[in-house]
Simulated scan of single mutants.
Amino acid sequence: MIPVARPYLPRREKLDAYLDGIYECNVLTNNGPLVQELTRRLRDYLDVEHLLLVGSGTLALQVAYRALGVSGRDDRPQAITTPLSFVATASSLKWEGVEPVFADIDTETWCLDPDSIPPLVGGRTRAVVPVHLFGNACDTEAIEAVAAAHGLPVIYDGAHAFGARYRGASLLARGDATTVSFHATKAFHTVEGGAIVFRREADLARARTLINFGQAGPDQIEGVGINAKMSELQAAMGLCVLDEIEACLEPRREAWHAYVEELQTRACLQRMNGGLEHHSYVYFPVAFADEAQMQRVKDALLAAGVGARRYFFPALDRIPELNPERPASRTAGDLAARLLCLPLGSGRDATERVLKTLRAVLPGLGKAAGDG
């Protein structure tokens, strides 16, 4: 079975060398030398300054909310976010005691629609949490202008945006903070892990204390924290993958462009933000004419040994635990029902099998797919 996302495994001898170093120094966690090295190298590679490694992408979101004062308060805070994302975007808010308030998405970029934010701002709104969906850049200028007008921080969920560049700079440098996921299915991974990129050094310092139980030193506790640190074993894998990042990205990039060439006149594809200069190649989503057509395609691919996935279904505002008693979005709900992500990173033969199946099941699809 061809998976929708195949984890990249670096050369074993490279990983063994890092593991030997761990055994020699006998340090497994607590900001060890490999975590420090990976932090330095990622700052350089991503062209960002205030970067903090953590144990997962979900923890990255939770710590960012705490560091920026969105959560950890008793005034029933709310945050405006998108209904089209992985569940962790909203469930991390809920876990932190913040009520997610769902705006809607742009019909073409599929990211948070800036015009849908202002009507939702209320007395308990404490942040805006957009998502760079499938690696596409949000309309950051418009979102940040709306947030600034209401005195709200912007925390981007950039789980899909590793390495993406926007208008000459790292996309991860936008907003008050941007979180990243280093889960095994991502192009760059540490098996499990994540990072937060802060705009301000003071927020980074606060978050560094938060991820270490609230301890600023061995005998100095500055508040309530959590254990969100990245381990040396995670950092070792990350260093290996970073050493081979181009080898990891190349098959994803190749499949991406092959899909675009074949499907741009056959299906509805996500329109990339014009300011996006370098894509992350983490997912390839396709929107079909309706849910029935999406299911036919999914079934055909499965019969051909291809594990396409419905990312992201259902829309988060359709989940009662996340959106009680609120109306659901029109655009996001409709799109979520029609979306399917195709495999990336499994090689040319896998890509050709996917395309062969699509050619058989989708003749003349272009007009039927609609305008998304």
Rank of each mutant, 00 (worst) to 15 (best):
V4F: 14
R11E: 15
R11D: 14
E13K: 09
L15V: 09
L15G: 06
D16Q: 14
Y18C: 01
G21A: 03
E24R: 15
T29E: 15
V35L: 07
Q36Y: 02
Q36T: 10
E37W: 01
L38Y: 10
R41A: 07
D44M: 04
D44E: 15
Y45E: 12
L46A: 12
D47L: 02
G57C: 00
G57F: 00
A64L: 01
Y65I: 06
A67M: 05
G69H: 13
S71F: 06
R73A: 09
I80H: 01
P83W: 01
L84F: 03
S85N: 14
S85T: 03
G97I: 06
V98M: 09
I105G: 01
T107F: 05
E108T: 06
T109C: 00
W110T: 02
I117A: 08
L120I: 10
G122I: 03
R124N: 14
T125G: 08
T125V: 10
V129W: 13
V129K: 14
F134D: 12
F134A: 11
N136L: 08
N136H: 12
D139W: 01
A142N: 04
V146Q: 04
V146G: 06
I155V: 10
H160C: 05
R165G: 13
Y166L: 12
A169D: 05
S170C: 12
S170D: 11
L171I: 02
R174N: 15
R174F: 12
A177K: 00
H183V: 12
A184Q: 13
E192H: 00
G193I: 02
G194N: 01
A202L: 15
A207Y: 00
R208V: 03
R208S: 15
T209H: 15
N212Q: 14
F213V: 13
G214N: 10
Q215W: 13
G223M: 12
G223P: 08
V224K: 14
G225N: 08
N227T: 06
N227M: 13
K229F: 04
S231A: 03
Q234N: 06
G238K: 07
L239Y: 05
C240K: 02
V241G: 03
L242G: 02
E244I: 06
L249K: 09
A255W: 13
W256H: 10
H257Y: 14
H257G: 01
H257P: 02
E261M: 09
C268K: 07
R271N: 05
N273P: 00
G274R: 11
G275L: 04
E277F: 05
V286T: 04
F288N: 03
Q293C: 11
M294V: 02
M294L: 03
V297C: 09
K298H: 14
L301W: 02
L316D: 00
L316C: 00
D317L: 01
I319T: 09
L322E: 05
E325K: 11
R326D: 03
R326W: 02
R326L: 05
A328W: 08
S329K: 07
R330C: 13
T331K: 08
T331E: 05
A332D: 04
L335C: 02
L335F: 05
A336Y: 01
L342N: 05
P343A: 04
G345I: 02
G347K: 04
R348T: 14
D349M: 11
A350P: 02
A350C: 05
A350G: 10
R353T: 11
L355F: 03
K356H: 15
T357N: 13
T357D: 15
T357W: 09
R359P: 14
A360G: 14
A360L: 11
G364Y: 10
A369D: 09
G370C: 04
G372K: 08
G372M: 15
